[in-house]
Amino acid sequence: MPEATAEPIVVVDDVHQSFGEVEVLKGVSFTVAKGGVVCIIGPSGSGKSTLLRCINGLVPIQRGSIRVANFDVHMLGSDKEKIALRKEVSMVFQQYNLFPHKTALQNVMMAPMHVLKENPGEVRERAIALLTKVGLAAKQDAYPGELSGGQQQRVAIARSLAMRPEVMLFDEVTAALDPETVKEVLNTIRGLAQEGMTCILVTHEMRFAREIADEVHFTDGGRIVESGPPAELFDRPQMDRTRAFLSQVL
């Protein structure tokens, strides 16, 4: 397994997570270097989304450890500590989850203003810059209900970026989108990756994963079955299960 040379910023070690009786994650380990882009692929129900939620501290884990930047995510007890973590790690969801009662600009501004308690004027400037970056400067006063899926997702990305996170998590962000709008969202993410943002993506877009990722993990049944650089994993998969999966989706 090729190890990234830079110092890892995310270290996931032997993570077990159960939902009631069902064990969703059965010992998952991997690391992400600072500035690295990691894609997680695999059939639905293999625990990919749960893994991201664990990294963001949204669901607790039963065994193992997760370290992100300076936080031991598995040890975070109080809400305060979790909130501190989430300033460093931001998540973008499959269903965008924008706040429907706020405009695009307000959605982006809300967290920095009220969580980071930053100066509204500065936040506003930054938010407009971020919306411009995702190509939605013209839509800043539109409500989520007035935006297309792809536009909403780009606002959601801008909203996460406004927190100036160290790590971005993307949870199947294009799965709910129309094929035409997928591209605009992927372009936005590509831009981020090129700027050196650390990204962990759960995705079904194999072509995109291959192009953008430094490392790809194939998960099935709550475990990482195979890992490697995209060229190797996609072209010369070692495991039968990986081959079977890839032959289905490619």
């Binding site: 989430r86 969801f93 269903q95 706040f99 980071l116």
Partner: peptide, 27 residues
């Protein structure tokens, strides 16, 4: 209000009070 709204607010580091009053309640 869908639970995903709570989740989104949590991942943006809002605390529970803020989430209730600024995100959930206005909706």
């Amino acid at each position: 209000i869908p639970t995903t709204q709570w989740e989104a607010a949590a991942s943006l580091a809002f605390n529970r009070r803020q989430t209730q009053w600024m995100i959930i309640f206005p909706q």
